[in-house]
Design a protein around this nucleic acid. Structure first.
Lengths: 341, 341
DNA sequence: TTGAAAGCGCTAACAC
DNA sequence: GTGTTAGCGCTTTCAA
């Protein structure tokens, strides 16, 4: 194999002394090809170090075998695992992944959706920065290829909406809060991110757990952004309240970082002074002293499911959404409320 | 804008009552276009909800404005941050990123390089699973577009090698070991991953620090795989040695997890029973009790630099490698050796 | 079973 | 300033 520059099918054909169409047939495993022909063509391919041009193929075929992925921030371990699951499933099916980071800016979501549309991806996987942004909704409405949402819910269903891979946040949250209530906590603080599906569902799980026990709603919910600073401020707020929270639930790993920083600043220890639960496992959380209780989910599987839903839609299946379970894992960061001095 | 199905430039042209080439000129901001023409074309584009087909454009132009990225495992926080940095820089320059996970299998590296070549990416960013794999080297030798390595060094330089973005691991490691030596440690264990650049450089830093102090080489280096299990086994080995290590350096976040598990199992506390240093920050490491000393680097910047080197090469610059600094951050996990009982 | 030719959607000469 | 035309590299009828 001699890597000549930019060999094309025509050159392979002339080298093998056959027609271009024959080369094409050999390379796409067409049934009606004689062994002689196959051998001659493959020899020429080898000699010239020929790599077929998928661009030309895609243009002709009308499909690119590529999927666009719009993600808020790939450096978030949660999204990175989802991406891994999706990429693996897509690759197994012969698709490639075009990745774009929106930096959690709704405006970028819309831009990227349009870019991917120009690149003629066969479908899109979307972890949107906003469920309600007008530009994003317009971009989605104009889409001509199916798209699947990852843990998001839209107010309406655009034409090409092909479903969503969702996590059952409410169930995991209800289990966590149930556990805290059993330990004797009544003043529970829940720190959430933006008003999107995962926030709504978590709040619902909390409310459900209180209602189930016929307890008055003595919880506090603080919405904000999914970043450490909101986690820190919310924690301060919860602890400085007239009736301070005895247990805190951080709705995401970025929030957890802020919570831990604030507890550290006040020299409060999780599991001793305040009980603590977080959402979505983060590398060292189980190795923490004490280990931090967590509402887990299988992120890789979430990405894989989303990819499968999309592949289904591409081959004509009806839109469908899957809800994946979340599991509460109690750990030593949860204990009975500290005795107030 | 009415999202008709698969509008093309021809339809826009006829709708606007002009020639296709005029549409093309308007859309690519050609200087010689009358305001009237521009307005008519843009109106037609708007009415038809037309999105230019980048595939056709790329086929014609001979460039795809896309970059292939081969990464071992995007779910590793280190790689995820590098990816973010690279994607951001590339996007700013108008390029899109095609992401492939090799699952740290050298064989997949070679496959993915060829796939990306068929997709006619304008260049490749490679975080290879092996620097010496024969298939990978053959694939690299056959490449017709420039590629930049991320923290890797090849035994030879293939024709299209355009440089590398490297971290100065040796410097950070030397500083860390120097610190440990000052604290009085002599038996220092270094746990490394596969025999690649980052491992070689870290070992070199360790050796240098000992040599500088004119100390005999009383360290132990254990190479293996970059996963928790090797971290765990190596830790056990270091602690069970006839002359046990009093300080351990974990060469990566996956190794650190194994180290912490083994210390936990033996009820040994970092900073009290054993000193501990890790390489590459991981989300909760600074919030650990005690906080874990770390040899840091700017991962995002590493990705950005790699992207910039590649963009440079695409526009004809000579191959060039950049070495980025690493910084040792001492924390409470490092203390004088415990008194042996 | 194989070859010739049309065309996927676009850009860049080249005329006018 | 605008239109006509020839491909970019491939697949796919349609003939032979």
């Amino acid at each position: 194999m001699v890597g000549a520059s930019r060999t094309n099918m025509k050159e392979v054909a002339s080298r093998a002394g056959v027609a271009m169409s024959s080369v094409s047939r050999v390379l796409s495993d067409h049934p009606d090809v004689s062994p002689t022909m196959r051998a001659r063509v493959l020899a020429a391919v080898e000699e010239l170090g020929y790599h077929p041009n998928m661009l030309a193929r895609s243009l002709r075929a009308g499909q690119t075998m590529s999927i666009g992925f719009v993600v808020g921030d790939i450096s978030n371990p949660l999204l990175a695992e989802i991406t891994l699951g999706a990429e693996t499933a897509l690759r197994e099916a012969g698709y490639s992944l075009l990745l774009t980071n929106s930096e959690n800016q709704p405006g970028r979501d819309a831009e990227h959706i349009q870019l991917l549309q120009r690149r003629r991806v066969d479908g899109l996987l979307l972890s949107l920065a906003s469920e309600t942004d007008a530009d994003t909704r317009a971009a989605l409405a104009g889409l001509e290829q199916p798209f699947v949402l990852i843990d998001r819910e839209l107010p309406e269903q655009p034409e090409m909406w092909a479903g969503a891979a969702l996590s059952d946040h409410a169930a995991g949250m209800a289990a966590a809060v149930h556990h805290l209530l059993e330990l004797g906590h009544r003043r529970i603080g829940l720190i959430l991110g933006q008003p999107m599906r995962f926030s709504r569902e978590r709040r619902r799980g909390l409310e459900h757990a209180f209602a189930e026990q016929r307890l008055p709603p003595s919880y506090i919910v603080l919405e904000g952004h999914l970043n450490p600073e909101h986690g820190r401020q919310a924690t301060a707020h919860l602890l400085d309240d007239a009736e301070p929270a005895t247990a805190i639930v951080a709705g995401g790993n970025q929030l957890l970082i802020g919570v831990l920083r604030e507890l550290e600043r006040r020299e409060l220890a999780p599991g001793r002074d305040v009980s603590l639960v977080t959402c979505d496992e983060i590398p060292l959380s189980e190795l923490f002293r004490p280990p931090i209780a967590v509402i887990q989910r299988d992120n890789r599987d979430l990405g894989r499911r989303a990819a499968e839903l999309l592949l289904g839609a591409i081959s004509g299946a009806e839109p469908r959404s899957d809800v994946l379970k979340t599991t509460f894992v109690p750990r030593a960061s949860c204990a009975p409320p500290a005795v107030r001095i």
